[in-house]
Computed example of a mutant assay.
Amino acid sequence: MTQAQSITVKNRSWDVAATLRLPEGFDAGRKYAAIVCAHPISSCKEQTSGAIYGEALTKAGFITLAFDASTQGASGGEPRFLEDPGTRVEDFRCAVDYLVTLPYVDEAKIGVLGVCGGGGYAVSAAMTDRRFKAVGTVVAANYGRLMREGDMSPDAAIKTLDAIAKQRTAEARGADPLIVGYIPGSEAERAKAGINDIDIVEAVQYYTTPRGQQPGSPNKLRLTSTGAAVGWDAFHFAELLLTQPLHIVIGGVPGGFGSYRDGLELYGRARSHEKSIQILPDTSHYDLYDKPEATSQALAQLVPFYKKHLGA
């Protein structure tokens, strides 16, 4: 059986909570390849990044480390519920800092896998941390693009920034922080709002029901923290800096989060000489979170990809 250990990783002055998984027959005298697994935006390590992909990759022989983003889940950091790209990307670097202190991790064989927004952050981290030797993404979404597009109106980004500026001023003058949800908090709330995009529909089905619901994923976002994301892009400089082997997994059913087109864009822009893209027909964004028929197909290519470029 695989072994799971609760550990912490230091990011600046706080602890990042993580689950370190060790493969069956683990031998501390050996050297293992390791993979950092990153959760979607609004998610936590107990959901798809750790419980699905982290566990499967560990069963395939890798050490995996799935972490909660700083200020979210069981991780420390203040103020709470930030979605700040700079801090999110630094979490990845700190995860590698931890792995390279373990005598049974081969520092030349560390990879990264990110799901949804975690995939965008994983790409950004790999571009500036050369310790990542192979990059895998599952329905990777570019959070910066999402924030700029907003409601898809011509000046969506400007309207978003104006609203954030107004709220920051109010909070500077003593108003309570504005904590909002990433998605509708229930099926009834979604229906009342008339939101029928497949990604939102399935996000509510995943996050607000026993299927995926977890205490570390409370659907809380500090609004003012998103200003930095509007001026950030997950794939910035991919043509220059993303050279590691890359495998991209996307579902063939497009939705509002844009992971289908982001996957195609990433594939086209990445400088990586060895890159591949896997498009699963009739598969949605959230099918690739936990539906066995989808995740098994993704892993059928991800596992050989990592074994080729990292060993096991």
Score class of each variant (00 low, 15 high):
R130H: 12
F132N: 00
K133C: 07
K133Q: 12
K133L: 07
V135M: 02
V135G: 01
T137F: 03
A141Q: 02
Y143N: 06
G144W: 02
M147L: 12
M147C: 14
M152H: 09
M152D: 11
A156F: 05
I158R: 14
K159N: 14
T160L: 11
L161F: 06
A163G: 13
I164Q: 01
K166G: 12
K166A: 15
K166D: 14
Q167S: 09
R168K: 15
T169R: 15
T169M: 14
R173Q: 13
G174N: 05
G174D: 05
G174I: 12
A175D: 09
A175W: 01
D176P: 07
D176K: 13
V180A: 15
G181L: 08
G181S: 14
E187A: 15
R190Q: 08
A191Y: 03
G194V: 08
G194W: 08
I195E: 03
I195V: 11
N196A: 15
I198W: 06
E202Q: 14
E202C: 03
Q205T: 10
Y206T: 04
Q214V: 12
G216M: 10
G216K: 01
K220I: 13
R222A: 11
L223Q: 07
T224L: 04
S225N: 05
T226G: 13
G227D: 03
G227V: 10
A228K: 11
A229V: 12
A229R: 00
G231Y: 02
G231A: 11
D233T: 07
F235M: 00
H236Y: 10
F237R: 13
F237Q: 13
A238P: 04
Q244A: 15
Q244I: 07
H247W: 03
H247N: 09
I250V: 13
V253P: 01
G256W: 06
G258Q: 02
D262H: 12
D262A: 07
L264G: 01
E265G: 10
L266V: 06
R269G: 05
